[in-house]
Nucleic acid binder design. Structure first.
Lengths: 209, 209
DNA sequence: ATTATCTATAGATCTATAGATAATGC
DNA sequence: ATTATCTATAGATCTATAGATAATGC
């Protein structure tokens, strides 16, 4: 037998397979992050990907599979900064570093941030399981870590859950509400710098023992 | 002449007109806030309003008019807490009061919060003019006020624009990301209390001169 | 031989309107 | 007489598939 033992229906993806699947996902990220799941159409994705609509459905079984694939891929990237909160590091440095990395992700990956925001905003219909299985355990673990730092007096007394949520809220705001930020503070570059300084000050003061 | 001088095509709305328009708007708030503009359908709105679909279009000229009407109405309510930031009050009390009122609005009007979030997230296609004409002047005015408080040493040195955005981000997070908050912190009542305490502490520390 | 792409279109879903009928207010 | 509601449906938009044709890899 020459099959790969795991699944006889699966063939190794060709070069073109891989490349075109990536193009579709890249285009879909654009479209889904801007219009949400239902607001996005295969036509828009096809146009953005430079492929025909039926051709897209040759690579993915349907609209939903594209969306789910994106969400699954992003989950990991998205949790990465939190996962790197190091129990052995200096608490203040670790937490401020986390804030910085999180803001950096908003700056560099605003589409990813908006894709998630859209999904959560609409009740997380396709991501609820992932939140339970992926996010929650990590969240609980890091809350315990922060709690231990707080108990040991290495940072101020603070509610770990709401601390983390505040970090998410403030950093993601700049990506998710970009259309509003742009109106209120048109100087983009300066704005990101000022945001970083502001968040560092805010969380430093909050956490100072 | 017996017409009302302003617009001869307009008649005073009947009792039923007013009541049914309200029912439609109430239902539409439900549906739009959950699915976004394109994700919402007139069928869903009609169902939620308990009216037939053509009947809804008897009261509104189309889907877009319903959405725009909602956004226009909400803008005022939404800006109200910021508008009440009083130059004559005690700076710290005013700002912490603002935080408290803003969080309260998230708790009491999560659908309104999500309606706005959806609109902004998708680039504010139907609200950009309102942001410029309604939000921006008020925002600039209050930023100047906060700056003057900061300059006078009555609160700590702080970037007013990013302070306000942080207040928005943290308070609205609890409404907009409710689906996620629910997973991570299932005890709803306790969560709102803890959120209030957390935000008060955070902004008090930030603003303490 | 297998993989990739295209044209054409089925079938579902949605917004909106036409036109008839019922309810309401003088 | 005017206002409100209903049935039926036009016309647009969308997802997905069928089936033929072209390109690629042994």
């Amino acid at each position: 037998m020459t099959d790969e033992a795991t699944d006889s229906t699966k063939r190794k993806p060709s070069r073109i397979q891989q490349k075109n699947r990536k193009r579709v996902l890249e285009a879909a990220l654009d479209v889904f992050s801007q219009h949400g799941y239902r607001g996005a159409t295969l036509d828009q994705i096809a146009e953005a990907a430079g492929l025909s609509k039926p051709n897209i459905l040759y690579y993915f079984s349907g609209k939903e599979e594209i969306h789910v694939t994106l969400l699954n891929r992003l989950m990991e990237t998205w949790l990465d900064p939190l996962a790197h909160l190091d129990p052995r590091g200096d608490p203040m440095a670790e937490l401020l570093g986390y804030v910085r990395r999180k803001l950096e992700m908003s700056r560099l990956y605003p589409r990813e941030s908006r894709l998630f925001a859209n999904e959560i905003l609409q009740g997380a219909p396709r991501m609820a399981p992932h939140l339970e299985s992926g996010l929650k355990p990590l969240f609980d673990e890091k809350c315990a870590l922060i709690q231990s730092w707080s108990d040991a007096g290495r940072i101020a007394r603070v509610n770990p859950r709401h601390l983390i949520m505040s970090i998410w809220a403030t950093s993601q705001h700049y990506a998710d509400f970009e259309a509003q930020v742009r109106v209120l503070e048109p100087e983009t570059d300066a704005s990101w710098k000022a945001a970083g300084a502001h968040l560092e000050t805010m969380f430093r003061k909050l956490l100072q023992p």
